[in-house]
Amino acid sequence: MKKYIKKHLFEFLTFIFTGILFVFYPDKTLAAVKEGAILLLKMLPMFLCVVFFSSFLALFLSPKTIQKYLGKESGFWGIVVAAILGTVIVGPLWILFPLFETLLKKGARISIVGAMVGAFAIKTPWIPYAISFLGLKFILISVILILGYAVLEGLLMEKILLKVNYQPK
């Protein structure tokens, strides 16, 4: 039980917070809970699609598979490909740090790793979910711009890091 609370501390605090709010503003809080519940129920089918598609990608297109695709292709288009591949990897960014570090140690160009990390802001399985909240135009433009910036970010990172004599740890 203690472990469970620790793992879901944020959720518990939120529920306690909601409870306190309810004591002071019962009507408003009830309306807020109702709104949250409706929104959640609306999103649930989409969310199910996301988790199942994510787990499919994770198993059939693992970062290790992606590593293979990167190969020695390290020209400008290699960086673009890396950025696009970066969008398919799912999960929080920091979980993948060790993998990217391995890539660097194995001799991948910094720009390749930089572009992949940069493109991570786009999560392909999440795109329909994001559109349902913010609209097609907003998400489409964001995706294109983030991809473009990811390539630029990779190139810039490489330039700067080589200048300061960066060595993978």
């Binding site: 909601t18 807020a32 949250g36 929104l39 959640l40």
Partner: peptide, 9 residues
């Protein structure tokens, strides 16, 4: 659930 609760609040 927590997140959507917060969004509602």
């Amino acid at each position: 659930v927590a997140i959507f609760l917060l969004v509602g609040i």
